[in-house]
Structures are given as structure tokens and as C-alpha cells.
């Protein structure tokens, strides 16, 4: 899924600065990494791309769709069917087991249909991320790394055209970092999905043809 941004602005509530991205273009199936200090707007841009936040100015298109112009229901539908989001703090449901957390998008939206193919794919993802033997365990019984992998499986299961990953390797040991990156790369490549990943880990940037530094995207608001 192609990403197009032109003069995108976003104002934080009760803050004296705004996020301003003059231009950004990511081709479909491309991999792009967002780097920069904490608070520089990386996660905010991910949320703008997902339609969770709405920009105060500029244009944002995903494929042929101008996300801010969709109504609320259409944005939610677009998000759950076309975008896979791996949240920094996982956003798992603690009273559900691993399998139900992975399946969650299929439970909460009628646009996603649970079929035997999807079930097989869910099993394969769990196997690939090393959590297949924990599918009946509740997520609050898992380690941070295991929870991260559950979140990745949930994001990848609907085969989205755009995968947004907010520091998906932040809680993992080096061996698991490589394993997760490999899964993310393989899955997105296999389905022609665009991967946008926020990271602080500069060692991971070699796998990304395009790296966006957020150092200068914040501008002060006039008094």
C-alpha cells in the first residue's frame, strides 16, 4: 500500500508545538523505519496513518484512499481490514487466551470472516513466532517478549496492506529480535505489504531501504 503525505500537520492538545511533515512518499511493498528521539512524533505519525488521530492540515493518502476524509465508521473499517498495527505496549486483552487475542479482529468486526484458511494461517503464525504451545494460556501469564509476539501475530493475521509496528522488538532479546524482524519482513514481502516501523535500535536499520529521521518535524506554535 502506497503512502503519500503532503504538508501534514497535527496539533497536540495542550502543547506549544505541532508536528509538521512537509512530504513523505513510501512505495507499495516498501520498508521504512522511523527514528528519532522520544517525543519527536514517530508514534503520532503511526496513529495518523492508522486513522486513530486526524491531522489538522495537509494530505494523507494510503493507496487511493484519503484517510482523513473517511467518516468514523469507514476509518475503523479501513483500519481493521487494511492495516496491521503492532502497538508499543501490545494492547492485548488480559482475560483472553493467546488464540483469542490473535483472533480478536475477527471477533469484533463483521468485515473479517473466520475461515479454515484463516485458522490455518493463525496456527502457522503462532508456530513461526514460537508461541504455538502457549495458545491456550492467558496473555497475562506470558513474558513481555511472548506478549509482543502475540501482538505481531494479531497484526499480521488479516494480511494487511500496511503494517505499522511501534518498536516491535523493544522487549526482545537479540535472538528474538532477529526472529521477529525476519517474520515481519517475510510476511510483508509475501503479501506485498508496506512496513513502517518505529525503532530506537539503529542496528536494525540495515534492513530498511528508507529511514526517516524525526529530528526536525516539530515546529513551535505561534504564541
Amino acid at each position: 500500500m502506497r503512502i503519500g503525505i503532503d504538508q501534514l500537520g497535527f496539533e497536540y492538545p495542550r502543547q506549544t508545538f505541532r508536528l509538521h511533515i512537509p512530504e513523505l512518499s513510501v512505495a507499495s511493498g516498501e520498508r521504512v523505519a522511523f527514528v528519532g528521539p522520544s517525543g519527536s512524533g514517530k508514534t503520532t505519525l503511526l496513529r495518523l496513518l492508522a486513522g486513530i488521530y486526524l491531522p489538522s492540515a495537509g494530505h494523507l493518502t494510503l493507496g487511493d484512499t484519503a484517510i482523513p476524509e473517511l467518516d468514523d465508521a469507514a476509518r475503523r473499517r479501513f483500519r481493521i481490514t487494511r492495516i496491521g498495527f503492532v502497538f508499543q505496549d501490545f494492547h492485548l486483552i488480559d482475560y483472553l487466551d493467546v488464540e483469542e487475542n490473535i483472533r480478536l479482529p475477527y471477533r469484533i468486526h463483521p468485515a473479517l470472516k473466520w475461515t479454515s484458511d484463516v485458522a490455518r494461517r493463525s496456527e502457522a503464525l503462532a508456530e513461526a513466532t514460537g508461541i504455538a504451545d502457549k495458545r491456550r494460556r492467558r496473555v497475562d501469564e506470558l513474558s513481555q517478549g511472548e506478549q509482543q509476539r502475540v501482538a505481531i501475530c494479531r497484526a499480521l493475521l488479516p494480511e494487511p496492506g500496511l503494517v505499522l509496528a511501534d518498536e516491535p522488538t523493544g522487549n526482545l532479546d537479540p535472538a528474538n529480535k532477529e526472529r521477529i524482524l525476519e517474520i515481519l519482513f517475510r510476511e510483508t514481502r509475501q503479501h506485498g505489504a508496506t512496513l513502517v516501523m518505529v525503532t530506537h535500535d539503529r542496528d536494525l536499520l540495515s534492513g530498511f531501504p528508507q529511514v526517516i529521521d524525526f529530528q526536525n518535524f516539530q515546529t513551535p506554535l505561534p504564541e
Binding site: I52, A73, R77, R79, I80, T81, H91, L92, P105, I108
Partner: peptide, 9 residues
């Protein structure tokens, strides 16, 4: 919030 972020109506 999680359900909303995922796209739940």
C-alpha cells in the same frame, strides 16, 4: 481503547 485502536465500531 484497544478495541477502538483495532477498528472496533
Amino acid at each position: 481503547e484497544t478495541l477502538f485502536h483495532l477498528g472496533c465500531s
